[in-house]
Amino acid sequence: MKERFIEAILFLAATSSVFVTFGIVWILVKESIPFFAHVPLGEFLTGTEWTPLFENARFGILPLLCGTLLSTAIALSVAIPLGTVAAAFLSEYTKPWLREILKPILELLAAVPTVVYGYFALLFVTPLLQKIHPDLGGFNVLSAGLVMGMMIVPYVSSLSEDAMRSVPGHLKEGSFALGASRFQTIFRVVIPTAFSGMTSAYILAISRALGETMVVSIAAGMQPNLTANPLEPAATITAFIVQVSMGDLPHGSIGYQSIYVAGLTLLFLTLCFNVLGLWLRQKYQEKE
């Protein structure tokens, strides 16, 4: 009897994570529905202005979407090459004892609080970039994106390295036995074999970059800006949510609803990339 009771409690604990997901989706959808009663979906998706807090409020998500995708693209263009090369190096070039030291140190990059990264982007990286490009403003997407990229390097490198190291040794031996070099073995055998695991790493990194909040809030400015120029300031979806939350918005107002809509959009975006990753993995596994 006692055993059954304990098992029931443990089971409830295990389902809690499902309730969290359910709660997130439910609340986001619930608070967004009244918003769309007020703003047509077409205007929301195609509008080029996002000014929910102005007298003459406009609700076009494109500027926020643009800021989010731009900062994510910059972050990934840093994190994916750097993380993948570092992973290949750790997995195929270093001795085990050195790897045991380097990997945890690299993982510390992901342990630094994001607000500290925001400080670093605004007050270290931006001034540094201004030395190269004097016209650069104090707030810009570039420095925020670069710092975000460094921040997510460990997500790419750690999981990729795990995937590469789990490639069976006899496959690597087979490649070397045919006269392949280390580089050839990495690119022709190890990476294709580890690709599925590496995709998970990339997807996690993309999710992190899309959802990253503090770095962009601090260093990229908070003005919604429909631009592809990384030297300009811009707001991401997350930065907008922060901006509104810092103020005092009455529960139920259109401004309050707009952060839920923004959150829902962000979640949807993350979901899209996850589905894409899943599809890529499946497609690749079929090919095998």
Binding site: P168, L171, G174, S175, A177, L178, R188, V189, P192, T193
Partner: peptide
């Protein structure tokens, strides 16, 4: 050239 104990075709 070498052939191994366990067949190890590449994926």
């Amino acid at each position: 050239g070498m052939v191994f104990q366990k067949p190890n075709p590449f994926p």
